[in-house]
Design a protein around this nucleic acid. Structure first.
Length: 554
RNA sequence: UGGGGCGUCGCCAAGCGGUUAAGGCAACGGGUUUUGAUCCCGUCAUCGGAGGUUCGAUCCCUCCCGCCCCAGCCA
């Protein structure tokens, strides 16, 4: 890729200025997922941005788990996230970072704020706190506990910590400004009581820091120079900066926001994706129809396709919706140049060659890629019994050559990489359906142009009958049939496409395909890109990553 | 409604006071082709609206319109 002429985005401009002014000498970024779900295509943009910036500026990017809420988090998510980030092609120094590693330090800083008369323990319950917070247009009211002595807050905070206070009974709040136009500054909660076992700290804590109190301080501890998050956190930035101004932090990080990736016909909300999994609308987080990294991987989308797509995206403050066609373009673009070609007949129709004798045991060598000799070639068995696709034969001989570039009685077609054949007759079943085509081959046409007077209508893929292996193909359609399924909190499930998965059995693949493994990418010629499913215990199953572009209008 | 953010081709998006208003996706024409694929060529915008500043504005100012985010002890 040549991104030489790619314009610098606003974050790169900020970094360039920071480097020039000397505010920053080492660029440090971080990708900070909460381990409460699987990573999806939206996260990929953030991953590519943060790790990409670190690479570009010879800096560092930390993978950091923002595990401040044991109620929703799980070690299994941590493991899946690590696997996905690595698979995308990124790595980090040492162990991943965890917010929970800083819980001791965070608690000390909370005490600092109390001592400085900048935080207090509040005994308002959630309902009361909401009422006193005011609204968008009305200022809030000070908590009756706001002015209590530091010593008292300190003692209360300690009993919260050791578990002597019931959940919901008290919180630690910052003392900022209940009349601020920015609601985030109306004495936000710093610590809440959750008597829960944390996946990493066990039962050590009965209180957990809020996102706002944790995030910026985590950045400061790690020396993050540019803390990049999505637009919805812009209103939290003043609070982020209030902490950097009021706490003795080891470094002063800065937060910048960019527009998150949204794709039409797709959902990028961890909560909703989890619901699809929990309610069994899909088979799991890695269902090939899911926009999760693991789903895309199982579907056959390559990591480089995802990276290329993300790199093509603008880093700006507009929140637009990208057309999935743009993603699909990068999926095809990568697969087209890197996937080996193979042949698989989806709806087999037997073709018997009547003039085959004399050509027995013909082994035909075909290239694995039309314009990449480095991918080598393979040998295909040929015989008088072949399968072509039902759709590649028509009884309608009136179809023009331009309109139907496939097999028709009395006319010729090229078998990809092999002979030119002519259809002579058909065999039908009692129902009147064509079950076999009787044909004859044109001798000496392998690897050669058609002889004078013969012109093939087109090229058709095939598979030799006796050596072919049976397989099942999973063909996917979009999971949602509405461009914006995410609209409306309750009804996105109503836009699920009931035909998002079709399982096609009885397909015939060339013999070499029996030995493939998940992760190998193939283009089944004239059909699309496929990869072996990760479930290799059963029969041979391939997932259709994406079809070939199909421009002709019938 | 208070605060914050954003509005350039169907979609994403460069542009940073003087440009023929980049590029990608999509679409539409045409060429090549033993994949109706790939590849190649071509077509496709006056910048949300109205004023103003300026010799000159997509870029600056004002007002208006529209969209997004914030009233979790979620992140």
């Amino acid at each position: 890729m040549t991104d030489i002429d790619k314009p610098t985005n606003f974050i790169q401009q900020i970094i360039n200025a920071d480097l020039e002014s000397g505010r920053v000498t080492n660029v440090v970024t971080r990708f900070p997922p909460e381990p409460n779900g699987y990573l999806h295509i939206g996260h990929a943009k953030s991953i590519c941005l943060n790790f990409g910036l670190a690479n570009q500026y010879n800096g560092q990017c930390n993978l950091r788990f923002d595990d401040t809420n044991p109620e929703k988090e799980d070690q299994a998510y941590v493991d899946a996230i690590i696997k996905d980030v690595r698979w995308l092609g990124y790595d980090w120094e040492g162990e991943p970072c965890y917010a929970s590693n800083y819980f001791d330090q965070l608690y000390l800083w909370a005490i600092t704020l109390v001592n400085d008369n900048k935080a207090y323990v509040c005994e308002l319950d959630a309902q009361a706190m909401r009422e006193l917070r005011g609204t968008l247009t009305e200022v809030g009211t000070n908590s009756p506990f706001r002015e209590r002595p530091a010593e008292e807050s300190l003692a209360l905070l300690e009993s919260m910590r050791v578990g002597d206070v019931a959940e919901g009974a008290m919180t630690l709040r910052a003392k900022i400004d209940m009349s601020s136009a920015n609601i985030n500054l109306r004495d936000p909660v710093l610590y809440r009581i959750k008597k829960m076992t944390h996946q990493r700290t066990g039962d050590k804590w009965n209180i957990y820091p809020s996102y706002d109190f944790a995030h910026g301080q985590e950045d400061a501890i790690e020396g993050v120079s540019h803390s990049i998050c999505t637009l919805e956190f812009a209103a939290n930035r003043p609070l982020y900066e209030w902490f950097t101004a009021n706490l003795p932090l080891p470094s002063i990080p800065h937060q910048y926001e960019f527009g998150r990736l949204k794709l039409n016909y797709t959902i990028t909300s961890k909560r909703k994706l989890k619901q699809l999994v929990d309610d069994h609308h899909v088979f799991g987080w890695d269902d090939p129809r899911m926009p999760t990294i693991s789903g895309l991987r199982r579907r056959g989308v390559s990591a480089s396709a995802i990276r290329n797509f993300c790199d093509s995206l603008a880093v700006a403050k507009t929140d637009g919706i990208v057309d999935v066609a743009q993603f699909e373009h990068f999926i095809r673009d990568d697969l087209n140049s890197n996937a080996a070609r193979a042949m698989c007949v989806i709806n087999p129709l037997l073709v018997t060659l009547t003039n085959y004798s004399g050509h027995e045991n013909v082994q035909i060598e075909v290239k694995n890629h039309p314009n990449r000799d480095d991918m080598g070639s393979r040998t295909l068995t040929f015989s008088d019994k072949l399968y072509i696709d039902q759709g590649d034969f028509s009884e309608d001989t009136s179809l023009s050559r331009k309109k139907f570039k496939r097999l028709v009685i009395g006319d010729y077609v090229r078998l990809r990489g092999a002979f030119i054949v002519r259809a002579d007759d058909v065999v039908k079943n009692p129902a009147g359906e064509v079950i076999e085509v009787i044909a004859s081959l044109v001798p000496d046409t392998v690897g050669k142009d058609a002889p004078e007077g013969i012109k093939a209508r087109g090229v058709v893929h095939w598979v030799e009958a006796s050596s072919a292996v049976d397989c099942t193909l999973n063909i996917y359609d979009r999971l949602f049939n509405q461009a914006d399924p995410d609209m409306g909190e309750q009804h996105f499930l109503e836009h699920l496409n009931p035909d998002s998965l079709s399982v096609v059995n009885g397909c015939k693949a060339e013999a070499s395909l029996a030995a493939t493994v998940a992760g190998d990418h193939y283009q089944f010629e004239r059909e699309g890109y496929f990869t072996r499913d990760t479930d290799q215990t059963k029969s041979l199953i391939f997932n259709c990553t994406i079809g070939l572009r199909d421009n002709w209008k019938a």
